Amino acid sequence: MQFKLIINGKTLKGEITIEAVDAAEAEKFFKQYANDNGIDGEWTYDDATKTFTVTE
């Protein structure tokens, strides 16, 4: 399945899409990606669109 991350950071904005087995695997990848890029904010997930959003 495809999952999307929308980044609304103070210094980094954009979107990335990955293939993952389930939402838990996608969330783990996205949170590591955000951590690696210094993004720390509020997370939301929309199951209907398979979209995670992080907002700083």
Rank of each mutant, 00 (worst) to 15 (best):
L12E: 07
T53S: 14
T55M: 13
G41R: 01
Q32K: 11
G38S: 05
F52M: 10
Q2Y: 04
K50D: 08
Q32P: 02
F3H: 07
E27H: 09
T17E: 14
Q2M: 15
A48Q: 14
K31N: 10
A48E: 10
E19A: 06
K31A: 07
E15S: 12
I18N: 07
I39R: 01
A48L: 13
D46Y: 10
N35P: 02
T17L: 07
D47Y: 08
F3L: 03
I6H: 14
K13G: 10
F3N: 00
I6K: 06
D36W: 09
I6W: 04
G9L: 04
E42R: 12
Q32I: 11
A24V: 09
K13N: 15
E27A: 07
I39H: 14
D40I: 10
E42N: 02
I16C: 02
G38D: 05
G14C: 02
D40N: 12
D47F: 05
K13V: 05
V54K: 00
T51A: 11
G14Y: 05
W43C: 01
N37W: 10
G38T: 14
V54E: 00
A26Q: 00
I7T: 10
T17P: 06
T17Q: 07
A26W: 00
T11W: 05
I18H: 09
W43M: 12
N37H: 08
K31D: 02
F52P: 00
Q2I: 10
T51K: 13
D36V: 14
T11G: 14
D22F: 09
A23V: 13
F52D: 00
G14Q: 13
D40T: 08
G41E: 01
G38L: 14
G41N: 01
L5F: 15
F52N: 00
A20N: 08
N8A: 09
L5W: 03
V54Q: 01
G41V: 01
I16D: 02
K10N: 03
F29A: 07
Y45T: 02
E19L: 11
N8W: 09
Q32S: 06
K4Y: 15
M1C: 02
L12D: 09
T55F: 14
L12K: 14
A34S: 10
G41I: 01
K10R: 08
T44S: 08
N35D: 12
I6N: 09
F3S: 01
I6T: 11
A20E: 11
D40Y: 14
T55D: 05
T44G: 06
K50P: 01
I16E: 03
K13H: 12
E56S: 10
D40V: 04
D22K: 04
T49F: 07
E25L: 07
A34H: 01
K28M: 07
K13A: 14
F30D: 00
T44K: 15
A24I: 12
T55Q: 10
I6R: 07
G9H: 03
E27W: 04
N8Q: 10
L5R: 00
V21M: 15
K31V: 11
L12V: 15
T49S: 07
T17Y: 10
D40R: 07
K10G: 06
A24Q: 05
T11F: 06
Y45C: 01
I39K: 02
T11A: 07
Q2T: 15
K28D: 04
G14H: 14
F3W: 14
K28E: 11
A20Q: 06
T53I: 04
N8T: 08
E56W: 11
K13W: 05
E15F: 10
K4L: 07
Y33V: 06
N37T: 12
T17R: 08
L5P: 00
Q2H: 13
K10S: 12
G41H: 02
E25T: 15
D40K: 09
F29T: 07
G38R: 14
D40L: 15
K10V: 07
E42A: 15
G38P: 01
T17S: 15
E27M: 06
T44F: 05
L5K: 00
K13D: 04
D46E: 08
D47L: 06
G9N: 10
Y33S: 04
K50H: 13
G41Q: 02
K31G: 03
T53Y: 10
K10C: 03
N8S: 14
G41C: 01
T44Q: 14
E27L: 06
F29Q: 07
T49D: 12
F29E: 09
A23D: 13
F30W: 02
T51P: 00
T17D: 09
Q32M: 15
T17I: 09
A48I: 15
A24L: 09
V21S: 12
K4G: 08
F30S: 04
T55K: 15
D36A: 13
I7Y: 09
A23I: 12
A34K: 02
D47E: 13
Y45Q: 02
N37M: 14
E25V: 05
N35M: 13
A24K: 11
G9T: 15
